[in-house]
Design a protein around this nucleic acid. Sequence first.
DNA 1: AAAGTCGGCGAACGGTTGTTTACTGAATGA
DNA 2: TCATTCAGTAAACAACCGTTCGCCGACTTT
Lengths: 225, 225
Amino acid sequence: MSHTLGVRQAQKQKTRRALLDAGLRLLEDQSLSSLGLREVTRVVGVAPAAFYRHFRDMSDLGVALVEESLGSLHGVVRVILAERDGDEQLIDATVEAVAELVRGYPAHIRFIARERHGGVRPVREAIAAELSRFADEVAEAFAPQLTAEGWSLEDVRMLAELYVDHMVMTATAFLEAQPGDQPGEPSEAQPGEGAGDPEAVRRVAATARRQLLLISLGRRHWRTG
Amino acid sequence: MSHTLGVRQAQKQKTRRALLDAGLRLLEDQSLSSLGLREVTRVVGVAPAAFYRHFRDMSDLGVALVEESLGSLHGVVRVILAERDGDEQLIDATVEAVAELVRGYPAHIRFIARERHGGVRPVREAIAAELSRFADEVAEAFAPQLTAEGWSLEDVRMLAELYVDHMVMTATAFLEAQPGDQPGEPSEAQPGEGAGDPEAVRRVAATARRQLLLISLGRRHWRTG
DNA sequence: AAAGTCGGCGAACGGTTGTTTACTGAATGA
DNA sequence: TCATTCAGTAAACAACCGTTCGCCGACTTT
């Protein structure tokens, strides 16, 4: 599809990407409401006025980052929920998926966690909308089985929100367990990669698994035990 | 105790309070890392330099706000957990306590939610420490009964963290259901008080109750069902 | 009553911010 | 080939920022 997009548009999207990347990098140490326009353009190596060719605002860039961070998540649910051979394996797969997400895109996850209740309204609303759509998909995936067991749609939605919130919670816990460039600590004992204390990561994963296990235990006995 | 504190110190603490109040008010629409020193002093009506008589930094003021917001919470747990006549009433009491907290001190709660993962490290760490202490108390309150049922201390702590995180989650959900001065919407149909859509508030409470019910259902069947 | 403490003031500093303006020059399309 | 589009530039703008300095004057201690 699409006939290779022309040299003009290609260059434009290239600097747009650079702006997004620079913004995301700077947002690891500060929040969006304090991130300056000039700060971003300075990192990219472009004139401040060039910013306006791509974004109206800083919050505009923020919304774009939200879509980039959470947009690719929508397929993931069905993939994980498809390979379920029992509760425990589904839980393991879920926690592992969250861990991999945090390991692969720490800056994106940190951005979402930080701006979910941050000071920029449009960004907050974009995140809320995206997470709500995410909960919709989780609910949709659980609906067939649970309604067959006599669950109301309201209760299914309630459970889906609990799952989504717990996933976000787990993701931020993973983030705190593997700090990116935490100043104060000069370096790692293991100079391999930037993954923080591996034992702390395992502890977070173990806690998350047990919590999900407890929740699914409650789910099995809902209005039947 | 303490001999009435002298006129000098009294005046000092008065402007200190004013600075904290002004900061908290301004932080309803922005995050700490973008809050300016001059901005705060301007609201209070003092010279910018006066700020340094009370706080070293903006993050210093932030840490003070954390203690003020979460410090008074430590007694609350035992009070609620004391009046328990069965699971459901304990859940109702908990949700009602959170709702009242949000209704009574919305700015404090918003501040905590916003800065928990915000851009200012010392504040993040202060919040994390306070919430951890809170989880300790919850765990301590649940320990006698649960250990008698064969729970490990690790599992008790896991459950306590789940409860605390769910309470924070519920508090922010309440906040979103009753927006303070949400611009865009000119005013309330009911000009009585600033509480937003009452039905949305009830819906949040109902969801939180059912989620807690499901969790306590899982707790009852932990390693026994 | 004298000496000392200290919260707040006012001014100045160097630096940064967002935004607008007129412009250049390469890619584009007729 | 020639006119047009438009991403990026350079400069200027007023406004604001955090921080430092010396000073005043009301409170406090001796």
